[in-house]
Design a protein around this nucleic acid. Structure first.
Length: 257
DNA sequence: ATGGCTACTCCTAGTAGA
C-alpha cells in the first residue's frame, strides 16, 4: 500500500494539482487536510474521473479533511465523539484494507499563549484520549496529517529563530510526544536521520527557494505497520509546481497490505 | 522587527494560515 498525506490549502483552488499529482504518483490512499469546502461543493466527480472515491468531512472556508482512496472505506468516523455541530472538521478516520487510518488537521495555534494556542493543546490532548478509547497499538493503525508541530530541531530550518514560537514551542512538542507515546513510530525517521527535510515552506519571502521550512506533516504508525514500512519521503517537486499549496505531500509505502 | 503570500468571504478589507 502506498499512502500519502497532503495539506492542499483549498481542494477547489488546488484541484488541477491534486489530480495531476494523483495521476503521477498513483497512491492507494491520499489523506488531505484544509479542503476548505462544504461536502456538497467537494469536487467528487473530478477525483472519480482519475480513479478515486472520497470520504468527506468538510466545512465551509476553514479546516476540512477528506480521504481519497482507490479501495473501499469502512467504519468511517467524523470528528471526536463529543464534538458538536459547531466543532471544527479536523479528524476523519476509516478502515482501509484492514488498516485503521486516521487523518488529522491539528489546529495551528496562531500565537503561543493565545486562546487558539490553548485550543490546540486541548485538541491534541483529546486526540490522545480518542486513540486510547478507540484503538489498540497491537493492531495496524496509521495516524497522518498536518500535525502543525515540528518534533525536533532537525525538523526546523532555524531552531533558534523558532524556539518557543508557534509550531515549535515546548508545550506543543510535549503534546505531540504524548500522542506519539500511545505507540507510534514516525515512518519518515525510520529511513532518514538527517535534518533539512521539510514539508511546509512559507509562501512569503522566498521560503521554498531558500529551503526555509518545517517538517510538520507526518505519517505515524503502530508497531505492526512499522514492521511493514518500506519507505517514507516528502515529494518536494509538487511545491515547485504552478500555484502550489504551501505544504508538500508526504508518502509512505508498506508491504503486504 | 516587520512583512513578505495565498485563499477565503453575504468580497474589494479583514481573517486565517504557519
Amino acid at each position: 500500500m502506498k499512502l500519502a498525506t497532503w495539506n492542499v490549502n483549498s481542494i477547489i483552488a488546488r484541484l488541477p494539482l491534486v489530480t495531476r499529482w494523483l495521476e503521477k504518483e498513483k497512491p492507494d490512499v491520499l489523506c488531505i487536510q484544509e479542503t476548505k469546502c462544504s461536502d456538497e461543493k467537494f469536487p467528487l466527480l473530478e477525483l472519480k474521473s482519475v480513479g478515486y472515491d472520497c470520504v468527506l468531512f468538510g466545512q465551509q472556508s476553514y479546516n476540512g479533511v477528506a480521504i481519497v482512496a482507490r479501495n473501499n472505506c469502512a467504519n468511517v468516523v467524523r470528528g471526536f465523539p463529543e464534538d458538536t455541530a459547531e466543532s471544527h472538521a479536523r479528524l476523519l478516520a476509516a478502515d482501509i484494507a484492514g488498516t485503521s487510518i486516521i487523518d488529522v488537521y491539528v489546529p495551528n495555534g496562531q500565537i503561543v499563549g493565545s486562546d487558539k494556542y490553548q485550543f490546540k493543546l486541548g485538541w491534541m490532548k483529546r486526540l490522545r484520549e480518542f486513540l486510547d478509547q478507540n484503538y489498540d497499538p497491537n493492531s495496524p493503525v496509521l495516524l497522518c496529517g498536518d500535525f502543525n508541530v515540528a518534533p525536533e530541531e532537525r525538523d526546523v530550518h532555524n531552531p533558534q529563530l523558532w524556539r518557543n514560537r508557534i509550531l515549535f514551542s515546548e508545550p506543543e512538542k510535549a503534546a505531540l510526544q504524548h500522542i506519539k507515546d500511545w505507540g507510534f513510530t514516525d515512518t519518515f525517521r525510520l529511513h532518514t536521520e538527517e535534518g533539512g527535510h521539510y514539508s511546509w515552506w512559507d509562501y512569503r519571502a522566498g521560503g521554498f527557494r531558500r529551503n526555509l521550512g518545517l517538517r510538520i506533516d507526518h505519517i505515524w504508525v503502530s508497531p505492526p505497520l512499522a514492521q511493514r514500512n518500506l519507505r517514507c519521503w516528502i515529494d518536494k517537486e509538487t511545491r515547485a509546481w504552478e500555484r502550489p499549496s504551501d505544504h508538500a505531500p508526504v508518502i509512505a509505502e508498506f508491504e503486504n497490505i
